[in-house]
Design a protein around this nucleic acid. Structure first.
Length: 661
RNA sequence: GCCUACGUAGCUCAGCAGGUAGAGCACUUCCUUGGUAAGGAAGAGGUCACCGGUUCAAAUCCGGUCGUAGGCUCCA
């Protein structure tokens, strides 16, 4: 007999060969019906998989939302794969996991058919519903590797076969069968397709995806879906997507006249006056922050000789992303531009670090000079893959809030800790919470393993000392994701609707000082290599502004809003008063505009509200006579009547940047 | 760069069994001086992304280029 302990502490005895399903059935038909899977000794398993011995069991139902969603999404992926193979014989299956909001499956379409398109989706959805309605049991079977290979070869599944061949030989592998159809899969799965809600999923889009995520491999046809436990959850999800679309910085950027992009400067931003006011607000803020934290601001050349980039290693590791320029004078003839074969090459800087090392190398540095913190609003150019460009978030010209801290080995941990504190204060000023991750050594890298061991350990240590290496701060290590010269600590912001954005970073680098031969004179009178900490907090001004726009849905806090207030008149008799108080606001440093147009107040309120102006000061005859204003704050229905001086004080207080309050 | 879709007035979109373009908003002018999310009228505005092909005729069909969107790869 088996002893099965339940979450309430009770125990049940069942014959050998029993499964969690038997326990559920024994407890009651309601639970049996609701049961989706089981946690056996903590491990998520199929409901019908027999116990291997005594165990602790908890049955998983739709109340265990995280587990239930994961199972349902994985099942939706299988159902999708079966549907596609039913409708399009000759399609090969590859992989299909659950995602954050649903699932996808990658297919190799039949010879000559081409990729699946969105036009195929309704038909596939209908077939999926048929499979769900058929309530096909999902049966787990253990096969040997050779059985699997033989099966896949016999069915023309070359991708699956290739994968199976790389699996270890002895191991028992599992397949899941839904009637005739089967896929190799670790599981677990729901007991049958009928446990899925046919109204709780939707196929959303198609895309290409490389086999095994490598762009040298074949392009597969991926079908994405969103999947949930019930219709209501799906509707909520679709609503969230609509809300996110409303916040899109590209849409708001156009509506608020902040910036534009056009193909003549592909991937570079045209900042309009309003947008550039946000930029200038951030720039001033950041200057105060770095001045206060012991940094010194510099400005370095936009174009440097290729030999410099060879020395730094960028020419070898980063050339494909760099804009190169022939250094040739004269570079024109009557027929137009010429480039002779033996021109020297220069390149627009993709990063600021080499130039900062060159500043460090001027003169002789003593250990007393360290740490030396060099900051630049560094404008970089990177020739990004065209398909990667995206609004302000991914551009080809961007300005980093970039600094390099040159320090001694024994100063690293302290400097990283200080940076953690600075970043924390700054993100709080903008109302963000964040997660910190450590990106570890990548495959393509400079430096010895010993150096990487040390660099990774230092960053880990500093974060731990700053008290940030906690689950609350989303602490996590990401293997293989570091830069080619250094491991990275990354700050991932969480925005108002729960999305995350990587912005801040600090990286401890011993490679570049070595390659560019930077040194300082130590206490012992000998030359030593400084360590270089690369760090940024906004990441780039472009991306950070994009994130702010989406985070605030365009309703920027007063200190950042391009137009902070509008004085709108009700009747033209109040024009002079409106001009008078606008002048006072301007004198007090408020960015204010007047709206004296011959329009009704309704119209003006609507227009300035849509333009996301934070404060609307409405004045008519009454206000002009009494020296008051009717203040309407963005997002607040009621207006407040108050003396102008009171409104002025309020505006001034709110327009003060958070670091100056 | 790769996959799929898309590209018509400043914006949002209609027109597409091929017969040289249309709406709403915005803009300009006029009327209206009206108390908190669109007052009324008139006018102006487009070589239908670009290049080429098929055709008597192309915004509409075909091919290419560029761009955009969503993915993949990459990334601040």
């Amino acid at each position: 007999m088996l002893k099965i302990r339940l979450p309430d502490g009770s125990e049940r005895e069942l014959p050998q060969g029993s499964s969690p399903a038997d326990v559920a059935r024994a407890i009651g038909p309601g639970l049996f019906k609701a049961a989706l899977a089981a946690r056996v000794d903590g491990e998520l398993r199929d409901l019908n998989r027999p116990f291997e011995g005594d165990a602790e069991l908890s049955l998983v139902t739709s109340r265990d939302e995280a587990d239930a969603l994961e199972l349902a999404r994985h099942d939706f992926a299988h159902v999708l794969a079966e549907a596609v193979q039913t409708l399009f014989p000759g399609t090969q299956i590859t992989f299909g996991p659950a995602t954050d909001d649903g699932f996808y499956y990658d297919f190799a379409p039949p010879e000559g058919r081409g990729m699946f398109t969105e036009k195929d989706l309704p038909e596939i959805e209908a077939e999926m519903r048929r499979i769900i309605a058929a309530d096909k049991p999902l049966v787990r079977e253990e096969w040997t590797r050779d059985q699997l290979i033989a099966h896949f070869d016999a069915h023309g599944e070359t991708f699956k076969s290739e994968w199976a061949k790389e699996l270890p030989e002895g191991e028992a592998l599992t397949i899941y069968r839904a009637g005739e159809w089967l896929d190799m899969c670790r599981g677990p799965h729901l007991p049958s397709t009928g446990k899925l809600d046919p109204q709780a999923f939707r196929l959303t889009r198609v895309s290409g995806a490389y086999w095994r995520g490598d762009q040298r491999n074949a392009m597969l046809s991926r079908i994405y879906g969103t999947g949930w436990l019930n219709k209501k959850q799906l509707a909520e999800h679709m609503h969230r997507l609509e809300e996110a679309a409303k916040r899109d910085h590209r849409k708001l950027g156009a509506e608020m006249d902040l910036f534009h992009l056009q193909q003549e400067a592909h991937g570079s931003v045209f900042w309009h006056p309003a947008g550039y006011l946000i930029w200038r607000g951030l720039e001033s803020y950041m200057r105060r922050a770095i001045d206060g934290a012991g940094y010194r601001e510099v400005k370095t050349p936009q174009v440097m000789d290729a030999r410099q980039w060879e020395a730094s290693g960028h020419w070898g590791k980063y050339r494909e992303n760099m804009f190169v320029i022939p250094d040739e004078v004269p570079n024109t003839e009557d027929e137009g531009a010429i480039i002779s074969g033996d021109a020297d090459w220069m390149a627009l800087k993709p990063m600021n670090c080499p130039a900062h090392v060159l500043i460090f190398k001027q003169g002789i540095k003593s250990y007393r000079d360290l740490p030396l913190r060099i900051y630049e609003n560094g404008c970089c150019h990177r020739n990004e893959p065209h398909g990667a460009l995206h609004g302000l978030m991914r551009v080809r010209q961007f300005t980093q809030d970039d600094a390099h801290i040159f320090c001694r080995e024994d100063q690293i941990v302290d400097e990283v800790q200080k940076f953690c504190a600075l970043a924390d204060r700054i993100y709080q000023h903008f109302g963000f919470t964040y997660a910190i991750k450590l990106a570890l050594r990548p495959e393509k890298r400079f430096g010895t393993d010993a150096m990487w061991d040390k660099a990774e350990a230092e960053l880990r240590d500093a974060v731990a000392r700053a008290g940030l290496a906690t689950a609350e701060h989303g602490w996590e290590e990401l293997p293989g994701e570091g830069a080619f010269y250094a491991p990275k600590l990354e700050w991932h912001l969480t925005d108002a609707i729960g999305r995350t954005w990587q912005v801040g970073t600090i990286q401890s680098d011993r490679v570049l000082p070595e390659r560019l031969d930077a040194s300082y004179v130590g206490e012992d009178g000998n030359r030593h290599r400084p360590v270089m900490l690369h760090r940024a907090i906004f990441g780039s001004y472009e991306r950070f502004i994009g994130i702010l726009i989406e985070h605030f849905a365009g309703k920027l806090p007063l200190w950042l809003a391009p137009t902070q207030a509008v004085v709108a008149t009700i009747v033209s008799d109040a024009d002079a008063y409106a001009e008078e108080i606008a002048a006072k606001l301007t004198a007090a440093g408020i960015r204010v505009e007047t709206d004296l147009r011959n329009e009704k107040i309704n119209y003006k309120v609507r227009e300035h509200s849509l333009a996301k102006v934070p404060m609307l000061l409405v004045v008519g005859n009454r206000e002009a006579e009494q020296g008051t204003v009717a203040l309407r704050q963005l997002g607040v229905k009621e207006q407040r009547f108050m003396p102008f001086d009171e409104a002025l004080a309020m505006l001034q207080a709110e327009a003060t940047p958070p670091d100056l309050r």
